[in-house]
Structures are given as structure tokens and as C-alpha cells.
Nucleic acid binder design. Structure first.
Length: 790
DNA sequence: CGTAACCTGGTTTTT
DNA sequence: CCAGGTTACG
């Protein structure tokens, strides 16, 4: 499945030959793709701005590429152009992306344009994989061996937990996870323990010390984490100007994809590898910056012209993906953001369907609505794989999955737990790592008693304590402990068997393939037996392990394989089948679908409460960009929905429609509501409210939800009527009727009835929200339009 | 040393 | 509500 090629210098490049569904291939449509090769031909079909972006090779360039404007095409053509005109040779180009998927796609497309010489693009990869390549060459400058291992988050947290415990810090109050987040954040900003600014801290003054201790521990494990790959680069290049100069001369042209998602460390790294007048081309879209929460600085792209004086800015604004209504809705939405460079997307694809906005009673009704619509579309000839459901958070996925299983609609969840994060895969890797490196204490801990060998926690702790005392690795310590009286006889026997097995496997390593070796280890260690005994999920895990041993065969060294796994490997699962795609909005970036459903546009869900609480206006703007990304994924049809009630963590909560719904320009939107929270105003004739004629939900449906909706429909309180007549105001935007400032006609202590919660008394009034003490359901916050006076 | 009750926290996620 | 982790017991 994976092919590996070794370039002259010994560096490795990987390509995944597995086929990928065509819908995962973004790219401009009208100009024919795959133009015939030959000098100049690669330019055919580019529009003037795209052509300019390709031909402006000298000096700093910022390409602002809006959604669906053919960004990848421009990037690859630009590279082809530089190579075809002989301005540089493949190994003189530095090309960085964020994801492996993007890197892989770029390599494929360049290969398509220029042929096999694309193999020479040694410095094309993710920030992290390129940084890892550089770090392996100079590892000794930061105290590592060039064979260092790269820890994932799990390992990282394990180390941190030990450090926290050693420092007698309450790991409940100060969790390893939050410390790991903190350290990550520091590394993202380019701060080492020495340069950590005052004020940055963890656990009341222990932050700096813990950070330093963690770094020291990593060195002793001959390991580094993801953040270190870049941070160590900064240290090495910063302290060795001659070396940095060397790299600057080497990289004649630098190309950066998704520049809006770079963090400070990545920015500094780029600055070290380029001069301010250098040939640096950054491509991005400030409106699609959605990774601020993990350190991305939109500022980097907003500041580009100041950072690189004389930089040329080229805007790609012609959209080849979506209809004008979709584009209009998305553009209107994003206009509400302040900090942006500004772009106006346009298309020649006029008309199409307006973006449909639908309000429903609850989450269940929402999934029912969407599932029904999918079936309708299916009958009309649309493929399942043309349809995507994009959610803000993964908890929203379950409702759809349940519904789809019920109706036998095929679906795939994109993202989710990753193959290499599964316990069984990590266990197998731990065995391999321990064979590879005696120092890998983390691997030792992981598998010393998996499967059970009678080496319990107390024994392991004792071993680790002794190892630390003598400054030895755990495994080395064990070799000694086998022959002393410090451990119980039974434990010693178990340990000595374990060590003997390890040594035998290590001896085998040279004589058999990695796949065979892994199979032998898993069999002889009893690991497979352990899984076979597990009726519940043992078979799945064994299947996963089978897949693992197979994909390993393609690598010619264990070291190469392990590097690939920790840095590069990701599997395209579920691609190719005809199935509805369910994924988060984040996972959808860069993809496109004919029909896109965007459920859960409710305050608190989207925008998510936390992003607003934690980051205020900045967080809100990022959420809005996320909404923009969501809408612009759609080619023909975008459907937004929101529910009035939702089950969150097992509790019913009343929901307000998202402010983003209000922000959609009315000209491009068709709105409907089942609950009356939004309705058809005078100007929205075509969006006939279902209130007046047909029952809210289709006939034949009979769940409690239906009854609730029915009785709710029948209620005629004044506020209900008001709510139904949602109005269009001001500059042609939908305005929610739930006006927080409307004078309340409720009184504290008043008895009310709620369709879902029953009878209760009003405790407090907050704008249009009431805190009600319900007799059965307890205290709840509800929207006033959903209760009646009794 | 292993299992069962209990508790707690709970976006987004790549490398 | 529910998964994962910790504590309390046998």
C-alpha cells in the first residue's frame, strides 16, 4: 500500500498509492485538469491572476487564495514553472504544508506535471517532517542522537505525569494534559525554558521548572515531541549562523501552503531559512484560519507585507466551485469579521439553489429531516458520496449515525480515532521500540506487563525508582535486578523470561522481515492469545495488527518504518465507497461536496460556548471563519439547520439559533421553521411557514417528539404568535425574534408550563431566557417562547 | 495483584 | 449520558 523510494542522499520519501475518492480531490473545474505536458503547456487554462501568481517567482509573494479559487493548482504549477524554466533544481526547493495529505497530493500533482524528476523534491513535506529531517542531521547540537524517537501526545502525557508526581503536585488539580497543553503552547510560540517570559506559568510558580525538567527527561530518553522538532530547529539555526546561512543558500525558492495556519515557531523557522528579500511565496486565506486554538497566528498572514518589505500580494478571487448563492451567503457571513485582508469572491456560475435554513424542534427532528432529505436526493439520482454532514463537534455525529443505521444509509465518519493511536498498534510499536532502543523507558513501561506476566505495578515502580537512582534505563536496570534480592523471586523469574525473549527477538531482527518479526513477537509474547481471549473486540484488534504487519513490509528498515509512523502515516479510510461523509468542520477544510448539510447552528454549539468564553471576540471570529469554511464546501447546495431543544450530556437544553444564522444575507437564503422561532416574514413568501398548512412533521411518524411538536403548534400565547412572525429588518438580514432587550412580560415566581419539562415556577429572568424551577425536571434555563403561562 | 463501584469531566486536532 | 480513570476492596 505504501511505496518508498530512497533518494541519493539517503533521505526517504513516501507516497501512498491507494486510490482516493474523486470527491477528495479539490481543484478547479472549468480549465481542464491534467493538461498535456511540455514546455509552457502547464500554464494553459490559468486565469490572469493565477498566471501572475505562477510567474511572479522572484521576491516575497503572498497569494491570497479564497475558497475554491484553484489554490493547489497554482501552487503546483508554480513549482513546475520554476523547475521547467531551470530557475532551480528539485532539491533547491523548500515546500511546506501542514498535513501529510496536502504534501502527498502536491507531490502527486507535480509528478503528473513534470514526471519522475519530482522525486528529487527532497524538501517537500509537512513543517514537522522537514524539520525532523534537518534535526536528524544536527541532533547532537541539542544533545540528542540522530536516532531520536518522536513521542506522541500519549507518551508525552505519561512523562509529564511522572514529573508532576515526582514534584508532589496534585495531578487532579494540575493535570498532565493541561501541562502538556501549556508546554505545547510555549513551544508553538518558540519559547524554551530559558526564554519563557515571566507570567507564563503552571501550578503556582512551577511552570518553568517543570518545563526544564521535561526537556531534560526527553534528552535522557533520546526523544523529542512534535513541538521540539521545530523548537530544536530554531535553537540550532539560531545558535549557528553559518549553518543557517548554509540552508538559506540551499533553498532558492520557498513555498508555504496554508500560511494562515502557521504558528509563531513556524514563522520564526521560515524567517531563519529565508532572507527578507528572498523568494518566499506564501499561500493562504485569512478567512479560513481555523486553528488558532492550537497556536496558529492569523497575524502572520495579516502582517506579511510588513515582514517581507516589497512583497507582492496577489488575490485569487474567482471561484470555480460554488454557485453564486452559496458564495453570496458565505461572503455576507464573513463580512462580520473585523480582522481580515478582504477579498471578494465571484463566480460565473450564476443562480442555483439558495442556501436553505431550517429550524426544527429538537436534535432528533434534525437528524430525521436530514436523513429524509438524503433519501429524497438519493432517489433523485444523487450519490451518497456527494453528500457531507459537517458538524462543529463530534458529539453531534451520534444522532446522525443512529438515524443512518436505522434507515440503512451508508455513511463514513472521517477522522475520529486514528489507526496509529489504537492501543494494540501502540503496544506492537512499543515492542519494536524496545528492541530498537534499550533506553526507551516509555515503551518498557507500556508492555512490561502486557500481556500479563505477573509483573505488577509495585514491581514496575520499584524498577523505575532503582533505574533512576543509578541513572540507568529501566531495561538495563532489570538486567541487574534479575540477579539480586531486591525483587520477589516470582517477579524475577518473570522479568528474566521477558528479557530473554526481548534479546532473542532482537537477534532475530536482522534475519527476518519486520512483518515476520512483528508477527513472531506478538505470537510468542502471548499478545495474540490475549486478544483472542477478548470476545468483544479482540478480532478487530487482531485485524488491525494484521494490517500493520502488512504495511510494514514496504519499509527497508525498522527505523524508517517507525519514523514514518510517528510523522507521516495516515490512512485514507472509507474513501471510495458510496457513503455519506460525516465529519467535523475542521476535517472538511480543503474538501468539497455537491450537497452539504450544516446542522446544529445554535448558540453555544456553533459558535461553541467555550471558544467565546475563552477567547472572546477573537474566538467568535474564528468560529465565524469556521462557518465560512463550512458553507464554502458546498458546490450546489448548502443546508443549514438548528434545533430548539437539544440533549446535551443527557440533559435537555433549550437552544437559541446561532447568531451566524442572523448574519446570512437574506438574498441568498431561504428560511423555514418548524418551531416558529424563525418564520416566514412578509418578504419571504416563498419560504412558506409550515405552520399554516401541513403538520410540522410528516405523517406516519409517531414519537413523543411528534406529540410535543403538535401540541406546541397548537399553543397560541401572544409571544408564540410574535415568534412566528420572524421579521426581516435593516439591511436585509434575518433577525431573530428572541430579542434579549425586549421588555419582559414575565414575572418571578410565575407558574409556567413547558412542553418538555412540565410545570414549574420562574426563578429568574435573563432577557428572553427564563430560569425555571420545574417540578419534575429541576432547574432549567429555557427560552420564554417555549413556556406558557398557566 | 486484580476486579468492581465510583467519580468526573466533557470542542475543534495535526504533527 | 458515557468513557476513562481512580479508589476501594477481596
Amino acid at each position: 500500500m505504501f511505496s518508498l523510494s530512497e533518494s541519493a542522499s539517503g533521505s526517504l520519501s513516501f507516497r501512498d498509492r491507494s486510490s482516493v475518492s474523486p470527491h477528495f480531490r479539490p481543484g478547479p473545474r472549468p480549465p481542464a485538469r491534467g493538461a498535456p505536458q511540455g514546455a509552457g503547456d502547464y500554464m494553459a487554462g490559468l486565469n490572469p491572476e493565477q498566471r501572475l501568481a505562477v510567474e511572479t517567482t522572484e521576491g516575497p509573494v503572498l497569494v491570497l487564495a479564497g475558497a475554491g479559487t484553484g489554490k493547489t493548482r497554482v501552487l503546483t504549477t508554480r513549482l513546475a514553472h520554476i523547475l521547467a524554466t531551470g530557475k532551480a533544481r528539485p532539491w533547491e526547493l523548500l515546500v511546506v504544508t501542514f498535513t501529510n495529505k496536502a504534501a502527498r497530493e502536491m507531490r502527486e500533482r507535480i509528478t503528473h506535471l513534470i514526471g519522475p524528476s519530482a522525486e528529487g523534491l527532497r524538501w517537500l513535506g509537512t513543517f514537522h517532517s522537514v524539520a525532523a529531517q534537518i534535526l536528524r542531521r544536527h541532533a547532537e547540537l541539542v544533545g540528542l542522537k540522530s536516532s531520536f524517537t518522536i513521542l506522541d501526545m500519549d507518551d508525552q502525557e505519561r512523562v509529564l505525569k511522572q514529573l508532576l508526581e515526582a514534584a508532589n503536585i496534585d495531578t487532579k488539580r494540575w493535570t498532565p494534559r493541561s501541562l502538556s497543553g501549556m508546554i505545547d503552547h510555549w513551544k508553538n510560540r518558540g519559547w524554551t525554558p530559558d526564554t519563557l517570559p515571566a507570567g507564563e506559568d503552571f501550578a503556582n510558580g512551577k511552570g518553568k521548572g517543570l518545563y526544564a525538567a521535561y526537556q531534560a527527561r526527553l534528552v535522557s530518553l533520546n526523544a523529542c515531541d512534535f513541538g521540539d522538532l521545530l523548537l530544536h530547529n530554531l535553537t540550532i539555526l539560531g545558535k549557528n549562523p553559518a549553518l543557517a546561512e548554509d540552508y538559506r543558500r540551499r533553498f532558492k525558492y520557498i513555498l508555504v501552503d496554508e500560511y494562515q495556519d502557521t504558528n509563531v515557531a513556524q514563522y520564526l523557522w521560515l524567517r531563519l531559512l529565508s532572507s527578507s528579500t528572498g523568494n518566499v511565496c506564501c499561500v493562504g486565506d485569512d478567512d479560513q484560519s481555523i486553528y488558532g486554538w492550537r497556536g496558529a497566528e492569523v497575524d502572520n498572514i495579516l502582517r506579511f507585507e510588513r515582514d517581507f518589505p516589497g512583497a507582492k500580494v496577489i488575490r485569487l478571487e474567482r471561484n470555480y466551485r460554488s454557485t453564486s448563492h452559496i458564495l453570496g451567503a458565505a461572503s455576507g457571513l464573513i463580512e462580520a469579521n473585523k480582522g481580515r485582508l478582504g477579498k471578494t469572491l465571484w463566480t460565473e456560475a450564476d443562480g442555483g439553489e439558495k442556501v436553505r435554513v431550517q429550524g426544527v424542534w429538537d436534535g432528533e427532528a434534525e437528524s430525521r429531516l436530514i436523513a429524509d432529505e438524503i433519501e429524497t436526493q438519493r432517489r433523485a439520482g444523487r450519490k451518497y458520496s456527494d453528500i457531507a454532514i459537517l458538524v462543529r463537534a463530534s458529539f453531534q455525529m451520534r444522532a446522525f449515525e443512529e438515524r443512518f443505521v436505522l434507515l440503512a444509509i451508508p455513511y463514513t465518519v472521517v477522522g475520529g480515532p486514528r489507526f496509529f493511536e489504537r492501543a494494540e498498534i501502540r503496544d506492537a510499536h512499543a515492542y519494536l521500540r524496545l528492541i530498537q532502543s534499550e533506553d526507551d523507558d516509555l515503551a518498557f513501561e507500556r508492555i512490561v506487563n502486557t500481556p500479563k506476566r505477573g509483573i505488577g505495578d509495585t514491581s514496575v515502580q520499584k524498577i523505575l525508582a532503582i533505574a533512576r537512582q543509578h541513572n540507568l534505563s529501566a531495561l538495563t536496570a532489570v538486567r541487574g535486578l534479575i540477579n539480586t534480592d531486591e525483587l520477589q523471586a516470582r517477579t524475577r523469574t518473570a522479568l528474566s523470561n521477558f528479557v530473554r525473549d526481548l534479546d532473542r527477538w532482537r537477534a532475530m531482527a536482522g534475519t527476518v522481515t519486520h512483518g515476520e518479526l512483528t508477527e513472531t513477537i506478538l505470537e510468542e509474547s502471548g499478545y495474540t492469545d490475549m486478544q483472542r481471549a477478548d470476545r468483544a473486540s479482540g478480532q478487530t484488534r487482531l485485524d488491525n495488527l494484521k494490517e500493520l504487519t502488512q504495511s510494514m513490509q514496504a519499509f527497508d528498515s525498522l527505523q524508517a518504518y517507525l519514523e514514518h509512523v510517528s510523522l507521516v502515516m495516515d490512512l485514507d479510510r472509507g474513501a471510495g465507497e458510496d457513503a455519506v461523509q460525516i465529519m467535523t468542520l475542521h476535517a472538511a477544510k480543503g474538501l468539497e461536496f455537491p450537497l452539504v448539510f450544516l446542522p446544529g447552528w445554535e448558540e453555544g454549539v456553533f459558535p461553541s460556548q467555550r471558544s467565546i468564553d475563552e477567547k472572546g471576540e477573537k474566538g467568535l471570529e474564528e468560529e465565524r471563519r469556521l462557518a465560512y469554511v463550512g458553507v464554502t464546501r458546498a458546490r450546489e447546495d448548502a443546508r443549514i439547520s438548528f434545533a430548539a431543544n437539544r440533549l446535551v450530556y443527557g440533559r435537555w437544553t433549550s437552544q437559541l439559533p446561532s447568531r451566524f444564522v442572523d448574519e446570512l444575507p437574506i438574498d441568498h437564503v431561504q428560511a423555514e421553521s418548524d418551531t416558529g422561532y424563525y418564520g416566514a416574514g412578509p418578504g419571504l413568501k416563498e419560504a412558506k411557514s409550515r405552520w399554516d398548512d401541513t403538520p410540522v412533521f410528516g405523517a406516519g411518524y409517531s414519537s413523543p417528539g411528534w406529540k410535543r411538536a403538535q401540541s406546541f403548534t397548537a399553543s397560541t400565547t401572544p409571544r408564540d404568535r410574535m415568534a412566528r412572525n420572524a421579521v426581516i429588518e435593516g439591511k436585509g438580514r434575518l433577525i431573530a425574534t428572541g430579542d434579549p432587550k425586549a421588555s419582559s412580560n414575565w414575572a418571578r415566581g410565575e407558574r409556567v408550563f413547558h412542553q418538555k419539562f412540565g410545570y414549574g415556577a420562574i426563578r429568574a429572568i435573563e432577557g428572553n431566557k427564563l430560569v425555571v424551577d420545574f417540578e419534575k425536571a429541576g432547574e432549567k434555563k429555557v427560552i420564554d417562547t417555549f413556556v406558557e403561562k398557566t
